[in-house]
Design a protein around this nucleic acid. Structure first.
Lengths: 323, 323
DNA sequence: TTGTACGCGTTATCAG
DNA sequence: CTGATAACGCGTACAA
């Protein structure tokens, strides 16, 4: 490892002069600077992160925590984060592994963006108490110290449900996510509230866990009842796709016997036949806004929590195939 | 920040005793240890990464570098990496941002797994010279110091092409990826070699860049020629799907007028109609093997390069819809 | 068994 | 303009 000390030796100056030169301090003659720079370059010098961090007490790194229900990874969300952070001199790392939760209190990262239901809320609150910078995307916390960037589940759920009910189904099902996830719980709560507004609507809640398999299981249950003109609100697309998989083996027709709507506007929802109705929102924007918030926190600006709006995507899975 | 020093004060011992206690050294009485542990816990002590790293000269962090052609992010590859690393006390971070390339020489990470065509080969070679641990997944290097875990493009390409040619197309097209990517170049080279083995086969290479848009452009070019029974080998699924998008607006029938095969067995390829023929391989395994190699390098074991095998996925996009 | 003291690589203060 | 020197937080050889 070639360090600042080696350069100093080579150049015949002291280490502090080298440091000044490297950090473009005006306290060093232009001539010595360029000479030192040249030597540093020749020696392939690259500053050591640990040393620098120890002194500066910040890393310019932001950590992102994700869970990965079933495989669709949040590509454009991450793009939104990186691009935004990049404009402000920060880099992004996606953290994963047993000890990764410690990166924040260990000061490996200057802030965290959390979209990971397996990250315990108690832990987040503990870190928030320590004045660590956190933006959460998947839960609501009491603490004023963490910033929230949440999906507008309220609008999305209402839109989806109203669209579904407009087809006058004889019965409506809701397939939920894991019961500890915020998005699932909030969507379920709003959907129930909406459904109970009309007394004459019969509905049933089926437990799922946001995976394709749980969607298949739900479809099986529904199919076995042998009802006609049923409506299903899957609280994410993944489960809706699982339903498709199961129903392909039956003679129930999607969009007619059974109407399905999802949530997320996943890639597959656009190509599956019949086209899946769903709820859309911009992953990119979600990431970008989260990044803006973390940057605000880092500057000490109090960051206002924000919502990412959602829109309805109509589809043949609800209205049937029109020719 | 509460540090080892604060604990020493609180417990009325010296910092080294605290350090010993924390690191389970046998050099400290069990009684003092537990007392110190308790105090550390009460004070919410968490060791500072920079300090520790500076001393230990390793972070137990492995960095993964990815590019993201078009949005499909490598979820299960990352899962393969994390799971494998986790069993050996390492954590994974996915690195992204302008300065992230420096993490390796800066010693923020103990090793790097690279699947990112935008990461310059020259840079990788420079780092390899410095004895930094690197596993590459997307190129072939001279250096004996870096380990390769590559797809078996040879088998995949041959399989795909033979399947396509078995339909006796009148003309065959190959749609390439960006010309600086290894996977594209090697697939193209092998395909060409295979095609030229039979003199009577007419074929043409169309330039693409692994994105959906480039697939659409290629489809347009092909459609305009108005040929019948054409075969197209898209060097990845993404472009094949772009072709579907374009062809949906024409009256050409996929699997009959135009036969298409892709590469990657993406999620969408399984759901699109008609089902896309493609080449499969295990992303999870790819990640897991890459992780094993990096671990081997870290232990000083010379890691043998390895290939990830590929298999053919037949589909209606080549054979047509059978009822 | 515990304490002292040094070093890891940087940055930054303070004299010269 | 430059050099010595003290942090930063932790680990550990050596001394007590």
């Amino acid at each position: 490892m070639v360090g600042i000390k080696d350069i100093a030796n080579q150049a015949g100056v002291s280490i502090s002069t080298v440091s000044y030169a490297l950090n473009n301090s005006p306290k060093v003659k232009e001539e010595t600077r360029s000479r030192i720079m040249k030597i540093a370059d020749e020696m392939n010098y690259i500053p050591n992160m640990a040393g620098r961090t120890l002194k500066r007490q910040q890393t310019n790194l932001i950590g992102v925590y994700l869970t990965n229900y079933g495989g669709s990874f949040y590509g454009s969300l991450l793009e939104g984060v990186t691009k935004t952070l990049g404009r402000h001199g920060y880099d992004m790392i996606v953290c994963s592994g047993t000890k990764s939760h410690l990166f924040l209190p260990e000061k490996l990262i200057d802030g965290a963006i959390i979209l990971d239901a397996t990250f315990p809320t108690a832990e987040i609150e503990k870190y928030a108490e320590r004045e660590l910078n956190i933006v959460v995307l998947d839960r609501e916390l009491e603490s004023e110290k963490v910033c929230h960037v949440l999906l507008d589940n309220q609008a999305g759920t209402t839109l989806a449900l109203d669209y579904l009910l407009a087809q006058s189904p004889t019965k409506t099902y809701i397939v939920t996510g894991p019961d500890h996830t915020y998005d699932s719980n909030i969507r379920l709560a709003i959907a129930k509230q909406e459904l109970e507004r009309f007394e004459h609507i019969e509905y049933e809640v089926l437990e799922g866990n946001f995976t394709k398999e749980s969607g298949m299981r739900a479809a099986k249950k529904i199919a076995e009842k042998n009802e006609k003109n049923v409506a299903v609100f899957c609280l994410n697309d993944e489960m809706a796709i699982g339903m498709y998989d199961y129903l392909a083996k039956t003679d129930l027709e999607i969009g007619k016997d059974i109407r399905i709507i999802g949530f997320d506007h996943s890639e597959v929802s656009r190509y599956i036949q019949p086209r899946l109705a769903t709820v859309d929102y911009s992953m990119y924007k979600w990431g970008a806004v989260a990044a803006e918030k973390i940057l605000a926190l880092l500057e000490g600006t109090p960051a206002k929590s924000e919502r990412i709006y959602t829109t309805l995507i109509r589809g043949e899975s609800v209205e049937g195939v029109q020719d």
